[in-house]
Nucleic acid binder design. Structure first.
Length: 552
RNA sequence: GCGCCGGUAGCUCAACUGGAUAGAGCAUUUGACUACGAAUCAAAAGGUUACGAGUUCGACUCUUGUCCGGCGCACCA
Protein backbone atom coordinates (compact mmCIF):
# COMPACT_ATOMS: atom_id res chain seq x y z
CA UNK A 1 0.00 0.00 0.00
CA UNK A 2 1.94 2.92 -1.28
CA UNK A 3 -0.80 5.38 -1.99
CA UNK A 4 -0.98 7.85 0.83
CA UNK A 5 -4.58 8.83 0.13
CA UNK A 6 -5.57 5.18 0.49
CA UNK A 7 -3.84 5.09 3.83
CA UNK A 8 -5.78 8.13 4.93
CA UNK A 9 -9.00 6.56 3.75
CA UNK A 10 -8.36 3.45 5.79
CA UNK A 11 -7.35 5.42 8.84
CA UNK A 12 -10.56 7.43 8.65
CA UNK A 13 -12.65 4.33 8.22
CA UNK A 14 -11.03 2.63 11.20
CA UNK A 15 -11.18 5.74 13.34
CA UNK A 16 -14.88 6.26 12.74
CA UNK A 17 -15.55 2.77 13.97
CA UNK A 18 -13.35 3.29 17.02
CA UNK A 19 -14.83 6.64 17.94
CA UNK A 20 -18.51 6.06 17.21
CA UNK A 21 -18.94 2.32 16.74
CA UNK A 22 -20.36 3.09 13.33
CA UNK A 23 -19.50 0.92 10.32
CA UNK A 24 -17.90 3.14 7.75
CA UNK A 25 -17.15 1.44 4.45
CA UNK A 26 -14.31 2.81 2.37
CA UNK A 27 -16.66 4.08 -0.34
CA UNK A 28 -18.19 6.46 2.12
CA UNK A 29 -14.88 8.12 2.85
CA UNK A 30 -13.84 10.76 0.38
CA UNK A 31 -10.27 11.95 0.53
CA UNK A 32 -9.48 14.93 -1.65
CA UNK A 33 -6.76 17.42 -2.25
CA UNK A 34 -7.97 20.82 -1.16
CA UNK A 35 -7.70 23.58 -3.74
CA UNK A 36 -5.56 25.67 -1.51
CA UNK A 37 -2.48 23.78 -0.26
CA UNK A 38 -2.47 26.00 2.82
CA UNK A 39 -5.45 24.01 4.05
CA UNK A 40 -3.33 20.89 4.12
CA UNK A 41 -2.23 18.14 1.79
CA UNK A 42 -5.46 16.17 1.97
CA UNK A 43 -8.90 16.58 3.44
CA UNK A 44 -12.04 14.61 4.10
CA UNK A 45 -15.66 15.60 4.49
CA UNK A 46 -16.60 12.52 6.48
CA UNK A 47 -17.87 14.51 9.46
CA UNK A 48 -20.52 16.18 7.32
CA UNK A 49 -21.56 12.91 5.80
CA UNK A 50 -22.00 11.30 9.22
CA UNK A 51 -23.90 14.20 10.73
CA UNK A 52 -27.32 12.79 10.00
CA UNK A 53 -26.66 9.24 11.10
CA UNK A 54 -24.99 10.31 14.34
CA UNK A 55 -27.34 13.19 15.11
CA UNK A 56 -24.41 15.44 15.89
CA UNK A 57 -22.97 18.61 14.51
CA UNK A 58 -20.30 18.03 11.85
CA UNK A 59 -17.78 20.16 13.75
CA UNK A 60 -18.19 18.09 16.93
CA UNK A 61 -17.81 14.85 15.03
CA UNK A 62 -14.69 16.18 13.35
CA UNK A 63 -13.12 17.22 16.62
CA UNK A 64 -13.74 13.86 18.23
CA UNK A 65 -12.33 12.10 15.20
CA UNK A 66 -9.13 14.08 15.11
CA UNK A 67 -7.98 12.67 18.44
CA UNK A 68 -8.41 9.08 17.29
CA UNK A 69 -6.98 9.78 13.85
CA UNK A 70 -3.71 11.04 15.22
CA UNK A 71 -3.01 7.57 16.60
CA UNK A 72 -4.06 5.78 13.45
CA UNK A 73 -2.13 7.88 10.97
CA UNK A 74 1.51 8.34 11.92
CA UNK A 75 2.25 9.78 8.47
CA UNK A 76 0.32 12.91 9.36
CA UNK A 77 2.28 15.68 10.97
CA UNK A 78 -0.87 17.65 11.65
CA UNK A 79 -4.61 17.01 11.61
CA UNK A 80 -7.04 19.84 12.08
CA UNK A 81 -10.67 20.82 11.71
CA UNK A 82 -11.73 23.69 9.48
CA UNK A 83 -14.81 25.37 8.09
CA UNK A 84 -18.11 23.52 8.48
CA UNK A 85 -16.35 20.29 9.54
CA UNK A 86 -13.61 19.43 7.08
CA UNK A 87 -10.73 17.46 8.51
CA UNK A 88 -7.43 18.55 7.00
CA UNK A 89 -4.28 16.47 6.99
CA UNK A 90 -0.75 17.67 6.71
CA UNK A 91 1.42 14.75 5.66
CA UNK A 92 5.10 14.64 6.43
CA UNK A 93 7.08 15.22 3.27
CA UNK A 94 8.98 11.96 3.66
CA UNK A 95 5.73 10.01 3.55
CA UNK A 96 4.75 11.90 0.43
CA UNK A 97 7.98 11.44 -1.45
CA UNK A 98 8.02 7.67 -0.93
CA UNK A 99 5.97 7.51 -4.10
CA UNK A 100 9.07 8.39 -6.13
CA UNK A 101 10.55 4.95 -5.63
CA UNK A 102 7.24 3.35 -6.47
CA UNK A 103 7.18 5.18 -9.78
CA UNK A 104 10.81 4.46 -10.62
CA UNK A 105 10.13 0.84 -9.85
CA UNK A 106 7.01 0.51 -11.98
CA UNK A 107 8.21 2.56 -14.92
CA UNK A 108 5.90 2.05 -17.89
CA UNK A 109 3.45 0.25 -15.65
CA UNK A 110 2.95 3.23 -13.37
CA UNK A 111 -0.70 4.19 -13.68
CA UNK A 112 -1.98 0.66 -14.12
CA UNK A 113 -4.53 -0.59 -11.65
CA UNK A 114 -7.01 -3.38 -11.09
CA UNK A 115 -9.99 -1.15 -10.57
CA UNK A 116 -11.71 -2.45 -13.71
CA UNK A 117 -11.52 -5.95 -12.21
CA UNK A 118 -10.98 -7.52 -15.60
CA UNK A 119 -14.45 -6.60 -16.77
CA UNK A 120 -14.76 -7.56 -20.43
CA UNK A 121 -15.66 -4.50 -22.41
CA UNK A 122 -16.31 -4.14 -26.10
CA UNK A 123 -15.92 -0.62 -27.44
CA UNK A 124 -17.38 0.01 -30.84
CA UNK A 125 -16.34 3.28 -32.44
CA UNK A 126 -15.72 5.06 -35.74
CA UNK A 127 -17.66 2.41 -37.74
CA UNK A 128 -17.90 4.80 -40.67
CA UNK A 129 -19.49 3.38 -43.80
CA UNK A 130 -16.91 2.18 -46.33
CA UNK A 131 -18.31 4.55 -48.91
CA UNK A 132 -15.99 7.50 -48.48
CA UNK A 133 -12.97 8.85 -46.66
CA UNK A 134 -12.89 9.45 -42.94
CA UNK A 135 -13.46 13.10 -42.22
CA UNK A 136 -13.16 15.41 -39.24
CA UNK A 137 -16.40 14.26 -37.71
CA UNK A 138 -14.96 10.77 -37.46
CA UNK A 139 -11.68 12.13 -36.11
CA UNK A 140 -13.24 13.14 -32.82
CA UNK A 141 -14.77 9.74 -32.24
CA UNK A 142 -11.59 7.97 -33.33
CA UNK A 143 -9.35 9.94 -30.99
CA UNK A 144 -11.75 9.70 -28.08
CA UNK A 145 -12.58 6.04 -28.56
CA UNK A 146 -8.98 5.00 -28.88
CA UNK A 147 -7.92 7.00 -25.83
CA UNK A 148 -10.85 5.61 -23.86
CA UNK A 149 -9.70 2.09 -24.69
CA UNK A 150 -6.15 2.86 -23.64
CA UNK A 151 -7.36 4.33 -20.37
CA UNK A 152 -9.75 1.52 -19.56
CA UNK A 153 -7.07 -0.98 -20.41
CA UNK A 154 -4.70 0.80 -18.04
CA UNK A 155 -7.34 0.73 -15.32
CA UNK A 156 -7.71 -3.03 -15.48
CA UNK A 157 -10.58 -3.56 -17.87
CA UNK A 158 -10.27 -6.14 -20.62
CA UNK A 159 -10.90 -4.01 -23.67
CA UNK A 160 -11.65 -4.98 -27.26
CA UNK A 161 -11.87 -2.33 -29.98
CA UNK A 162 -14.37 -3.04 -32.66
CA UNK A 163 -15.23 -1.48 -35.99
CA UNK A 164 -18.63 -2.39 -37.35
CA UNK A 165 -18.49 -2.30 -41.13
CA UNK A 166 -21.77 -1.43 -42.82
CA UNK A 167 -21.09 -3.36 -45.96
CA UNK A 168 -24.60 -4.47 -46.76
CA UNK A 169 -27.70 -2.58 -47.68
CA UNK A 170 -28.62 0.42 -49.67
CA UNK A 171 -25.49 2.53 -49.27
CA UNK A 172 -23.39 -0.22 -50.80
CA UNK A 173 -25.73 -0.41 -53.78
CA UNK A 174 -25.12 3.29 -54.16
CA UNK A 175 -21.39 2.81 -53.84
CA UNK A 176 -21.36 0.29 -56.67
CA UNK A 177 -23.59 2.47 -58.84
CA UNK A 178 -21.37 5.49 -58.23
CA UNK A 179 -18.24 3.52 -58.97
CA UNK A 180 -19.66 2.12 -62.15
CA UNK A 181 -20.72 5.54 -63.30
CA UNK A 182 -17.20 6.89 -62.73
CA UNK A 183 -15.73 3.83 -64.39
CA UNK A 184 -17.80 4.39 -67.51
CA UNK A 185 -16.84 8.04 -67.53
CA UNK A 186 -13.21 7.04 -67.82
CA UNK A 187 -14.14 5.62 -71.22
CA UNK A 188 -16.36 8.50 -72.16
CA UNK A 189 -19.42 6.34 -71.70
CA UNK A 190 -22.46 7.83 -70.06
CA UNK A 191 -23.92 5.98 -67.04
CA UNK A 192 -26.09 7.94 -64.63
CA UNK A 193 -24.63 8.82 -61.25
CA UNK A 194 -27.57 8.65 -58.84
CA UNK A 195 -28.47 11.84 -56.95
CA UNK A 196 -28.03 10.14 -53.60
CA UNK A 197 -24.88 8.40 -54.79
CA UNK A 198 -21.34 9.31 -53.82
CA UNK A 199 -20.02 12.23 -55.79
CA UNK A 200 -16.66 12.82 -54.14
CA UNK A 201 -13.32 12.49 -55.90
CA UNK A 202 -12.28 9.36 -53.96
CA UNK A 203 -14.80 7.28 -55.89
CA UNK A 204 -13.09 8.32 -59.12
CA UNK A 205 -9.84 6.98 -57.67
CA UNK A 206 -11.47 3.67 -56.92
CA UNK A 207 -12.84 3.52 -60.47
CA UNK A 208 -9.37 4.19 -61.84
CA UNK A 209 -7.95 1.30 -59.85
CA UNK A 210 -10.52 -1.01 -61.36
CA UNK A 211 -9.61 0.33 -64.78
CA UNK A 212 -5.95 -0.44 -64.09
CA UNK A 213 -6.80 -3.94 -62.99
CA UNK A 214 -9.42 -4.97 -65.49
CA UNK A 215 -9.31 -2.49 -68.35
CA UNK A 216 -12.63 -2.09 -70.18
CA UNK A 217 -13.81 -5.55 -69.19
CA UNK A 218 -16.93 -4.25 -67.42
CA UNK A 219 -17.95 -1.71 -70.02
CA UNK A 220 -21.43 -2.05 -71.56
CA UNK A 221 -22.17 -5.07 -69.43
CA UNK A 222 -25.39 -5.85 -67.70
CA UNK A 223 -25.67 -4.71 -64.10
CA UNK A 224 -26.11 -8.27 -62.91
CA UNK A 225 -22.62 -9.00 -64.23
CA UNK A 226 -20.67 -6.17 -62.62
CA UNK A 227 -22.65 -5.37 -59.51
CA UNK A 228 -21.25 -7.86 -57.01
CA UNK A 229 -17.72 -7.34 -58.23
CA UNK A 230 -17.94 -3.58 -57.90
CA UNK A 231 -19.40 -3.90 -54.43
CA UNK A 232 -16.68 -6.23 -53.22
CA UNK A 233 -13.87 -4.24 -54.76
CA UNK A 234 -15.32 -0.94 -53.59
CA UNK A 235 -15.70 -2.07 -49.99
CA UNK A 236 -12.24 -3.56 -49.91
CA UNK A 237 -10.58 -0.50 -51.42
CA UNK A 238 -12.42 1.96 -49.24
CA UNK A 239 -11.69 -0.08 -46.13
CA UNK A 240 -8.08 -0.13 -47.12
CA UNK A 241 -7.94 3.65 -47.21
CA UNK A 242 -9.79 3.84 -43.89
CA UNK A 243 -7.31 1.46 -42.29
CA UNK A 244 -4.38 3.48 -43.61
CA UNK A 245 -5.84 6.72 -42.34
CA UNK A 246 -6.53 5.23 -38.92
CA UNK A 247 -3.03 3.88 -38.85
CA UNK A 248 -1.65 7.33 -39.50
CA UNK A 249 -3.89 8.55 -36.69
CA UNK A 250 -2.50 5.85 -34.37
CA UNK A 251 -5.82 4.05 -34.03
CA UNK A 252 -6.05 0.29 -34.35
CA UNK A 253 -8.91 -2.12 -34.04
CA UNK A 254 -8.95 -5.66 -32.69
CA UNK A 255 -12.09 -6.72 -34.48
CA UNK A 256 -13.73 -5.78 -37.73
CA UNK A 257 -17.25 -7.11 -37.72
CA UNK A 258 -19.03 -6.95 -41.06
CA UNK A 259 -22.73 -6.42 -41.48
CA UNK A 260 -22.52 -8.98 -44.28
CA UNK A 261 -21.56 -11.59 -41.73
CA UNK A 262 -25.09 -11.46 -40.37
CA UNK A 263 -26.52 -12.13 -43.80
CA UNK A 264 -24.60 -15.40 -44.13
CA UNK A 265 -26.45 -18.72 -44.26
CA UNK A 266 -29.73 -17.13 -45.24
CA UNK A 267 -29.24 -14.48 -42.58
CA UNK A 268 -29.68 -17.03 -39.81
CA UNK A 269 -28.53 -14.73 -37.04
CA UNK A 270 -30.91 -12.02 -38.12
CA UNK A 271 -33.73 -14.47 -38.57
CA UNK A 272 -33.11 -15.74 -35.05
CA UNK A 273 -33.52 -12.23 -33.69
CA UNK A 274 -36.84 -11.87 -35.44
CA UNK A 275 -37.96 -15.33 -34.35
CA UNK A 276 -36.99 -14.69 -30.74
CA UNK A 277 -38.91 -11.45 -30.71
CA UNK A 278 -41.85 -13.13 -32.37
CA UNK A 279 -41.90 -15.90 -29.80
CA UNK A 280 -42.30 -13.23 -27.13
CA UNK A 281 -45.19 -11.72 -29.07
CA UNK A 282 -43.18 -8.57 -29.77
CA UNK A 283 -43.52 -8.69 -33.54
CA UNK A 284 -46.52 -7.78 -35.66
CA UNK A 285 -47.29 -7.13 -39.30
CA UNK A 286 -48.86 -4.04 -40.70
CA UNK A 287 -48.95 -2.39 -44.13
CA UNK A 288 -46.86 -5.21 -45.50
CA UNK A 289 -44.00 -4.56 -43.08
CA UNK A 290 -42.74 -6.45 -40.04
CA UNK A 291 -42.62 -4.41 -36.85
CA UNK A 292 -40.94 -4.66 -33.46
CA UNK A 293 -43.21 -3.62 -30.60
CA UNK A 294 -40.54 -1.38 -29.03
CA UNK A 295 -43.14 0.87 -27.40
CA UNK A 296 -43.59 -1.86 -24.82
CA UNK A 297 -40.15 -0.92 -23.56
CA UNK A 298 -40.65 2.81 -23.63
CA UNK A 299 -39.82 3.72 -27.20
CA UNK A 300 -41.75 6.56 -28.84
CA UNK A 301 -43.04 4.38 -31.62
CA UNK A 302 -42.78 0.83 -32.86
CA UNK A 303 -39.95 0.13 -35.29
CA UNK A 304 -39.86 -1.61 -38.62
CA UNK A 305 -37.69 -4.70 -38.87
CA UNK A 306 -38.53 -5.70 -42.43
CA UNK A 307 -39.80 -3.23 -44.97
CA UNK A 308 -42.73 -3.96 -47.23
CA UNK A 309 -40.15 -4.42 -49.99
CA UNK A 310 -38.97 -7.49 -48.15
CA UNK A 311 -35.62 -5.90 -47.30
CA UNK A 312 -34.44 -5.46 -43.75
CA UNK A 313 -34.01 -2.07 -42.14
CA UNK A 314 -30.62 -1.02 -40.83
CA UNK A 315 -31.80 -1.78 -37.33
CA UNK A 316 -32.36 -5.50 -37.70
CA UNK A 317 -28.85 -6.72 -38.55
CA UNK A 318 -27.51 -4.27 -36.00
CA UNK A 319 -29.59 -5.92 -33.29
CA UNK A 320 -28.06 -9.22 -34.37
CA UNK A 321 -24.68 -7.52 -34.16
CA UNK A 322 -25.30 -6.50 -30.56
CA UNK A 323 -26.60 -9.92 -29.61
CA UNK A 324 -23.45 -11.37 -31.14
CA UNK A 325 -21.36 -9.11 -28.92
CA UNK A 326 -23.06 -10.45 -25.82
CA UNK A 327 -22.72 -13.98 -27.09
CA UNK A 328 -19.00 -13.50 -27.33
CA UNK A 329 -18.95 -12.98 -23.59
CA UNK A 330 -18.60 -9.24 -23.12
CA UNK A 331 -19.92 -7.86 -19.87
CA UNK A 332 -20.40 -4.36 -21.12
CA UNK A 333 -20.85 -2.89 -24.57
CA UNK A 334 -19.81 0.67 -25.15
CA UNK A 335 -20.77 2.42 -28.37
CA UNK A 336 -19.60 5.79 -29.53
CA UNK A 337 -22.20 7.18 -31.86
CA UNK A 338 -22.74 10.52 -33.50
CA UNK A 339 -25.27 12.68 -31.68
CA UNK A 340 -27.52 12.62 -34.73
CA UNK A 341 -28.17 8.96 -33.92
CA UNK A 342 -29.42 9.57 -30.42
CA UNK A 343 -32.94 8.35 -31.11
CA UNK A 344 -31.37 5.10 -32.17
CA UNK A 345 -30.03 4.52 -28.65
CA UNK A 346 -33.45 4.01 -27.17
CA UNK A 347 -34.57 1.52 -29.77
CA UNK A 348 -31.38 -0.54 -29.49
CA UNK A 349 -31.72 -0.67 -25.72
CA UNK A 350 -35.35 -1.70 -26.13
CA UNK A 351 -34.27 -4.50 -28.42
CA UNK A 352 -31.66 -5.71 -25.94
CA UNK A 353 -34.17 -5.69 -23.13
CA UNK A 354 -36.73 -7.46 -25.27
CA UNK A 355 -34.22 -10.21 -25.98
CA UNK A 356 -33.55 -10.69 -22.29
CA UNK A 357 -30.37 -8.66 -21.80
CA UNK A 358 -29.97 -6.00 -19.18
CA UNK A 359 -30.18 -2.78 -21.18
CA UNK A 360 -27.69 -1.12 -18.84
CA UNK A 361 -25.00 -3.40 -20.15
CA UNK A 362 -25.22 -1.39 -23.34
CA UNK A 363 -23.78 2.08 -22.85
CA UNK A 364 -23.86 4.60 -25.62
CA UNK A 365 -21.81 7.78 -25.50
CA UNK A 366 -22.88 10.36 -28.03
CA UNK A 367 -20.36 12.44 -29.91
CA UNK A 368 -21.57 15.98 -30.37
CA UNK A 369 -20.90 17.89 -33.53
CA UNK A 370 -17.52 19.37 -34.41
CA UNK A 371 -17.11 22.61 -36.33
CA UNK A 372 -13.77 23.19 -37.96
CA UNK A 373 -12.90 26.84 -37.53
CA UNK A 374 -10.21 28.97 -39.10
CA UNK A 375 -9.90 32.73 -38.82
CA UNK A 376 -13.00 32.68 -36.68
CA UNK A 377 -15.25 31.21 -39.35
CA UNK A 378 -16.41 27.68 -39.95
CA UNK A 379 -14.51 25.77 -42.62
CA UNK A 380 -16.88 23.34 -44.22
CA UNK A 381 -14.84 22.24 -47.16
CA UNK A 382 -11.24 21.47 -47.85
CA UNK A 383 -9.67 24.09 -50.09
CA UNK A 384 -7.73 21.39 -51.87
CA UNK A 385 -10.48 18.91 -52.66
CA UNK A 386 -13.70 20.83 -52.25
CA UNK A 387 -15.02 17.98 -50.12
CA UNK A 388 -15.21 17.51 -46.37
CA UNK A 389 -11.81 17.72 -44.70
CA UNK A 390 -10.41 14.24 -44.27
CA UNK A 391 -8.51 12.83 -41.32
CA UNK A 392 -5.50 12.53 -43.57
CA UNK A 393 -5.56 16.21 -44.48
CA UNK A 394 -6.05 17.13 -40.84
CA UNK A 395 -3.04 15.07 -39.80
CA UNK A 396 -0.90 16.63 -42.50
CA UNK A 397 -2.14 20.08 -41.67
CA UNK A 398 -2.00 20.28 -37.88
CA UNK A 399 -0.19 17.06 -36.98
CA UNK A 400 -1.44 13.92 -35.29
CA UNK A 401 -0.49 15.07 -31.79
CA UNK A 402 -2.38 18.34 -32.00
CA UNK A 403 -5.38 16.76 -33.70
CA UNK A 404 -5.72 14.02 -31.11
CA UNK A 405 -5.10 16.36 -28.20
CA UNK A 406 -7.75 18.85 -29.29
CA UNK A 407 -10.41 16.25 -29.89
CA UNK A 408 -9.79 14.54 -26.61
CA UNK A 409 -9.40 17.61 -24.42
CA UNK A 410 -13.05 18.58 -24.52
CA UNK A 411 -15.98 16.68 -23.10
CA UNK A 412 -17.60 14.42 -25.63
CA UNK A 413 -21.14 15.58 -25.10
CA UNK A 414 -20.57 19.23 -25.81
CA UNK A 415 -20.33 20.71 -29.26
CA UNK A 416 -16.85 21.84 -30.03
CA UNK A 417 -15.10 24.24 -32.33
CA UNK A 418 -11.79 22.93 -33.56
CA UNK A 419 -9.53 25.95 -33.92
CA UNK A 420 -7.28 24.92 -36.79
CA UNK A 421 -5.08 27.98 -36.52
CA UNK A 422 -4.42 27.35 -32.85
CA UNK A 423 -3.77 23.65 -33.37
CA UNK A 424 -1.22 24.52 -36.02
CA UNK A 425 0.70 26.98 -33.89
CA UNK A 426 3.95 25.77 -32.45
CA UNK A 427 4.08 28.13 -29.51
CA UNK A 428 2.86 28.57 -25.99
CA UNK A 429 -0.70 29.40 -27.07
CA UNK A 430 -1.04 25.80 -28.04
CA UNK A 431 -1.54 23.53 -25.03
CA UNK A 432 -0.07 20.52 -26.82
CA UNK A 433 3.29 22.19 -27.11
CA UNK A 434 3.13 23.50 -23.58
CA UNK A 435 2.75 19.95 -22.31
CA UNK A 436 5.27 18.42 -24.67
CA UNK A 437 7.77 21.09 -23.84
CA UNK A 438 7.52 20.15 -20.18
CA UNK A 439 8.42 16.61 -21.11
CA UNK A 440 11.32 17.77 -23.26
CA UNK A 441 12.62 19.85 -20.38
CA UNK A 442 12.50 16.86 -18.04
CA UNK A 443 14.37 14.77 -20.53
CA UNK A 444 16.86 17.53 -21.12
CA UNK A 445 17.75 17.96 -17.47
CA UNK A 446 18.44 14.29 -17.06
CA UNK A 447 20.50 13.89 -20.21
CA UNK A 448 22.36 17.13 -20.36
CA UNK A 449 26.09 16.99 -20.33
CA UNK A 450 27.29 17.83 -16.84
CA UNK A 451 24.26 16.41 -15.08
CA UNK A 452 25.42 13.79 -12.59
CA UNK A 453 24.21 10.22 -12.90
CA UNK A 454 21.15 9.57 -10.77
CA UNK A 455 21.48 6.87 -8.13
CA UNK A 456 18.32 5.67 -6.37
CA UNK A 457 18.08 6.24 -2.64
CA UNK A 458 15.89 4.85 0.11
CA UNK A 459 14.18 8.10 1.03
CA UNK A 460 13.83 11.44 -0.64
CA UNK A 461 13.93 13.33 2.62
CA UNK A 462 15.70 16.40 1.30
CA UNK A 463 12.82 17.37 -0.95
CA UNK A 464 11.02 20.07 0.97
CA UNK A 465 10.40 23.02 -1.32
CA UNK A 466 6.63 23.63 -1.64
CA UNK A 467 6.94 23.40 -5.41
CA UNK A 468 8.50 19.97 -5.33
CA UNK A 469 5.99 18.76 -2.78
CA UNK A 470 3.13 19.90 -5.00
CA UNK A 471 4.74 18.19 -7.96
CA UNK A 472 5.13 15.00 -5.92
CA UNK A 473 1.49 15.04 -4.91
CA UNK A 474 0.46 15.50 -8.50
CA UNK A 475 2.42 12.51 -9.81
CA UNK A 476 1.26 10.41 -6.87
CA UNK A 477 -2.31 10.96 -7.94
CA UNK A 478 -1.90 9.61 -11.45
CA UNK A 479 -3.23 6.06 -10.95
CA UNK A 480 -6.31 7.42 -9.22
CA UNK A 481 -6.89 9.85 -12.08
CA UNK A 482 -6.70 7.01 -14.56
CA UNK A 483 -9.21 5.02 -12.53
CA UNK A 484 -11.62 7.91 -12.43
CA UNK A 485 -11.21 8.73 -16.11
CA UNK A 486 -11.97 5.10 -16.93
CA UNK A 487 -14.91 4.84 -14.58
CA UNK A 488 -16.57 8.00 -15.86
CA UNK A 489 -15.31 7.50 -19.40
CA UNK A 490 -14.00 11.04 -19.14
CA UNK A 491 -10.98 10.97 -21.38
CA UNK A 492 -10.56 14.73 -21.21
CA UNK A 493 -9.52 14.43 -17.57
CA UNK A 494 -6.26 12.87 -18.66
CA UNK A 495 -5.60 15.95 -20.79
CA UNK A 496 -6.33 18.18 -17.84
CA UNK A 497 -4.00 16.05 -15.78
CA UNK A 498 -1.18 16.38 -18.31
CA UNK A 499 -1.67 20.09 -18.45
CA UNK A 500 -1.63 20.48 -14.68
CA UNK A 501 1.45 18.32 -14.41
CA UNK A 502 3.21 20.39 -17.06
CA UNK A 503 2.25 23.57 -15.27
CA UNK A 504 3.56 22.38 -11.93
CA UNK A 505 6.75 21.21 -13.53
CA UNK A 506 7.40 24.46 -15.40
CA UNK A 507 6.81 26.33 -12.19
CA UNK A 508 9.14 24.05 -10.26
CA UNK A 509 11.77 24.34 -12.94
CA UNK A 510 11.80 28.09 -12.68
CA UNK A 511 11.86 28.13 -8.94
CA UNK A 512 14.28 25.36 -8.01
CA UNK A 513 17.45 24.48 -9.78
CA UNK A 514 17.65 20.71 -10.12
CA UNK A 515 21.33 20.39 -10.83
CA UNK A 516 23.04 22.21 -7.99
CA UNK A 517 26.76 21.32 -7.93
CA UNK A 518 27.08 22.77 -4.43
CA UNK A 519 24.64 20.19 -3.09
CA UNK A 520 25.08 16.78 -4.78
CA UNK A 521 22.75 14.94 -2.40
CA UNK A 522 19.85 17.28 -3.01
CA UNK A 523 20.63 17.21 -6.74
CA UNK A 524 20.41 13.45 -6.75
CA UNK A 525 17.06 13.42 -4.97
CA UNK A 526 15.70 16.05 -7.32
CA UNK A 527 16.86 13.98 -10.27
CA UNK A 528 14.82 11.16 -8.78
CA UNK A 529 11.76 13.39 -8.70
CA UNK A 530 12.29 14.57 -12.28
CA UNK A 531 12.71 10.97 -13.38
CA UNK A 532 9.43 10.04 -11.71
CA UNK A 533 7.69 13.04 -13.23
CA UNK A 534 9.01 12.12 -16.64
CA UNK A 535 7.75 8.55 -16.35
CA UNK A 536 4.37 9.82 -15.25
CA UNK A 537 4.11 12.33 -18.07
CA UNK A 538 5.12 9.78 -20.66
CA UNK A 539 2.55 7.30 -19.43
CA UNK A 540 -0.15 9.94 -19.31
CA UNK A 541 0.53 11.14 -22.85
CA UNK A 542 0.53 7.54 -24.04
CA UNK A 543 -3.00 7.17 -22.75
CA UNK A 544 -4.25 9.83 -25.13
CA UNK A 545 -2.01 8.78 -27.98
CA UNK A 546 0.12 11.91 -27.98
CA UNK A 547 3.86 11.59 -28.38
CA UNK A 548 6.37 12.57 -25.70
CA UNK A 549 9.22 14.17 -27.65
CA UNK A 550 12.75 14.21 -26.28
CA UNK A 551 13.64 17.12 -28.54
CA UNK A 552 11.42 19.77 -30.04
C1' G B 1 -45.10 20.08 -30.74
C1' C B 2 -42.05 15.93 -28.53
C1' G B 3 -37.07 13.97 -27.31
C1' C B 4 -31.54 14.30 -26.53
C1' C B 5 -27.10 17.56 -25.56
C1' G B 6 -25.40 22.15 -24.20
C1' G B 7 -25.37 27.65 -21.90
C1' U B 8 -19.52 29.11 -16.50
C1' A B 9 -14.49 35.67 -17.01
C1' G B 10 -14.22 39.51 -23.50
C1' C B 11 -12.64 34.39 -26.11
C1' U B 12 -11.54 28.78 -25.55
C1' C B 13 -12.37 25.52 -21.66
C1' A B 14 -11.93 23.21 -16.13
C1' A B 15 -14.19 22.24 -11.59
C1' C B 16 -12.04 15.28 -8.55
C1' U B 17 -20.04 13.60 -9.85
C1' G B 18 -23.10 17.64 -3.58
C1' G B 19 -17.90 20.47 -0.53
C1' A B 20 -14.25 25.29 1.75
C1' U B 21 -12.96 31.93 -1.42
C1' A B 22 -15.96 28.67 -9.01
C1' G B 23 -10.18 27.63 -11.47
C1' A B 24 -6.66 27.66 -16.02
C1' G B 25 -4.96 29.41 -20.91
C1' C B 26 -5.54 33.33 -24.54
C1' A B 27 -6.33 38.59 -24.86
C1' U B 28 -5.16 43.26 -21.35
C1' U B 29 -1.55 45.47 -17.59
C1' U B 30 3.35 44.77 -14.90
C1' G B 31 7.86 42.30 -13.78
C1' A B 32 12.02 38.02 -14.72
C1' C B 33 17.15 35.40 -19.56
C1' U B 34 26.04 36.79 -17.90
C1' A B 35 23.34 29.08 -14.50
C1' C B 36 19.41 23.01 -16.18
C1' G B 37 15.87 25.45 -23.48
C1' A B 38 12.02 32.45 -22.11
C1' A B 39 8.16 27.08 -26.70
C1' U B 40 9.07 29.28 -19.70
C1' C B 41 8.00 31.72 -15.01
C1' A B 42 6.01 35.47 -11.24
C1' A B 43 1.97 38.96 -10.43
C1' A B 44 -2.52 42.22 -11.33
C1' A B 45 -7.29 42.61 -13.27
C1' G B 46 -11.51 40.02 -14.99
C1' G B 47 -17.93 36.23 -12.35
C1' U B 48 -25.38 37.34 -9.99
C1' U B 49 -22.15 29.85 -13.13
C1' A B 50 -28.46 32.14 -18.97
C1' C B 51 -32.93 33.49 -15.58
C1' G B 52 -36.58 32.22 -11.54
C1' A B 53 -38.32 28.68 -7.72
C1' G B 54 -37.26 24.34 -4.77
C1' U B 55 -34.37 20.27 -2.10
C1' U B 56 -30.07 20.86 2.68
C1' C B 57 -25.36 22.05 7.01
C1' G B 58 -23.64 23.31 1.73
C1' A B 59 -25.82 23.66 -5.34
C1' C B 60 -22.11 25.12 -11.49
C1' U B 61 -23.50 20.08 -9.98
C1' C B 62 -29.88 17.32 -7.97
C1' U B 63 -35.68 18.65 -9.02
C1' U B 64 -38.82 21.99 -11.59
C1' G B 65 -40.40 26.21 -14.78
C1' U B 66 -38.76 29.84 -18.50
C1' C B 67 -35.30 31.79 -22.34
C1' C B 68 -31.28 30.89 -26.01
C1' G B 69 -28.21 27.50 -29.30
C1' G B 70 -27.27 22.60 -31.70
C1' C B 71 -29.12 17.85 -33.09
C1' G B 72 -32.99 14.33 -33.91
C1' C B 73 -38.25 12.90 -34.55
C1' A B 74 -38.12 7.43 -41.85
C1' C B 75 -40.56 1.23 -44.24
C1' C B 76 -32.32 6.34 -44.76
C1' A B 77 -28.05 4.38 -42.99
Amino acid sequence: MSDISEKIKNAVSVSVKEAFGEECPDQMVMVERPRDPKMGDFSTNIAMRLAKALHKKPVDIANELVGVLKNNLPEASDISVAGPGFINFVISSSALTDVINVILDKGNDYGKSESGKGEKVLVEFVSANPTGDLHCGHARGAAWGDALCRIMDEAGYQVTREYYVNDAGNQIDMLAESMYSRYCQLYGVEYPLPDNGYHAQDIVEVAKKIQEKDGDKWLNKDKSEWEDYFKDEGIEMKLDVIRQDLDLYRVHFDEWTHERFFYQNDAERIQKVIDDLRSKDLVFEQDGAVWFRSTQFGDDKDRVLRKNTGLLTYLTPDIANHVYKFERGYDTLINLWGADHHSYVKRMKCAMEALGYDADRLQVDLIQMVRMVSNGVEVKMSKRTGNAITIRELCEDVGVDAARWFFVSKELNTQMDFDMDLAKQKNNDNPVYYVQYAYTRMFNILHKEGTPEFTPVEHYDLLSDPKEIELTKQIAEFPKKVEEAAKHRAVNRICNYCYDLAKLFHSYYNSCRVNDPSNPELTNQRLGLVNAAMITMKNALDLIGVSAPEKM
